[in-house]
Design a protein around this nucleic acid. Structure first.
Lengths: 210, 210
DNA sequence: CTCCGACCGTGACATTTGTCAGGGGGCCGT
DNA sequence: ACGGCCCCCTGACAAATGTCACGGTCGGAG
């Protein structure tokens, strides 16, 4: 599979240094792949990519500074020729959708066999799309987030824990409004609690964006 | 650093196949280390260890079947000569304490530089203890869990989300008693919510074993 | 033995939460 | 211009939640 041509240049972004290094070791075993950059924060992706000009970027979703989805969008805008393969811990249905919308070429969860990663990289580099079929089905089933923008924002803020009055202060809203938004979110998620609604929304990846 | 003697035999346990394989690749780069077994579940650690007789086991904490702490205890009981190095995502203060009590020789979080992992393995194999000094300080500061056994159980059950009545049914308690335990837990954790108390207790690693 | 603390329960209370029915205002597509 | 959707607010209500004071049991430490 490894032609004699120049190897594929890779950028790795993951907040956990250990798995970042381990992935680098894993991918460096392949003759046709070479890791040219590693970063631990989402907001370092674009600057580092400018410097090292990778062919493919492997981005984690959970990262400080800038999440992997936003980093994907930024990277696609800055270096359109660089393909993005999102590698994440959680197979949240919404993550896949958002990643694809942001311009990612592939989406792989971290419990896929290690063997398949290099192939995924090659496919992405060749211009193909790589998606976990199981996850794709879930994504179709889960559909788009039913939550309105405000509801999402309230729910995201409520994640930190705090009374409705606290949320109202933080969001410059009336307390009753906050409770209304929460009630709507609870209804739409099928939950029976505020906490439950947060769980559901988080599992589906509906709490990302800015 | 690599003597000519027989290499150190390693067992890897992590639920994410990708990082498991990546860690294997990383550690296999060292001449004096060899990965002899990989498992993805906590309850497969002891059977696989019996078969492959590793010198050191690298265990993740978050695993299906049996968490890494319990797996540590089981492994120490079954094969006392095999050392355990716990490698985990979260630096929960309570995790370190519990791991050490269970008989682990080392504790490493996943955002330590990849370079240090092999050394940690060697130190553990040599009979030394390996602990992140920052985390050790936090553990001392956080102290033991202030929660009583029942309070912990109630809080752990409440994690799944559900009304006080639900918890009462699940635990065969009165609803008032459940609310009392929760109230006590809220007070001890310094939280102002049930959900908040769960967050705090979880962050400190007070909601583990049975 | 006695005391203390963990545990279980009761009942009552104030607060918070979730729900519902309203009433505005703004924006967009028809 | 109209309906429809989202947003914001109000007020009121039932339910759930958190708190408190109180009694009782049981086991272990002094």
């Amino acid at each position: 599979m490894s032609g004699g041509s120049t190897p594929i240049r890779l950028l790795l972004a993951d907040d956990q240094a250990l798995v970042r290094g381990a992935l680098a070791a894993l991918l460096s075993l392949e003759e046709d792949l070479t890791v040219v950059a590693e970063v631990g924060r989402g907001d370092e992706v674009v600057p580092e990519a400018r410097r090292s000009a990778p062919d493919v970027a492997l981005l984690d979703v959970e990262m400080p500074g800038l999440d992997g989805i936003a980093a994907t969008a930024a990277l696609r805008a800055a270096l359109p020729t660089c393909r993005v393969l999102v590698v994440t811990t959680f197979g949240r249905p919404g993550y896949l959708r958002r990643a694809m919308e942001a311009g990612a070429s592939g989406f792989v969860v971290k419990d896929t066999p290690a063997r398949q990663l290099a192939d995924a990289v090659r496919r992405v580099h060749a211009g193909l799309r790589v998606v976990d079929p199981t996850l794709a089905a879930e994504t179709l089933a889960a559909g788009v987030s039913p939550l309105t923008e405000r509801e999402t924002e309230v729910l995201r803020t409520a994640r930190g824990g705090g009374s409705a009055a606290d949320l109202a202060r933080a969001l410059h809203l009336s307390e009753g409004t906050v409770r209304n938004h929460l009630s709507a979110a609870i209804g739409k998620t099928g939950a029976r609690n505020r906490a439950d609604a947060i769980r559901v929304a988080e599992q589906n990846g509906w709490l990302l964006g800015e």
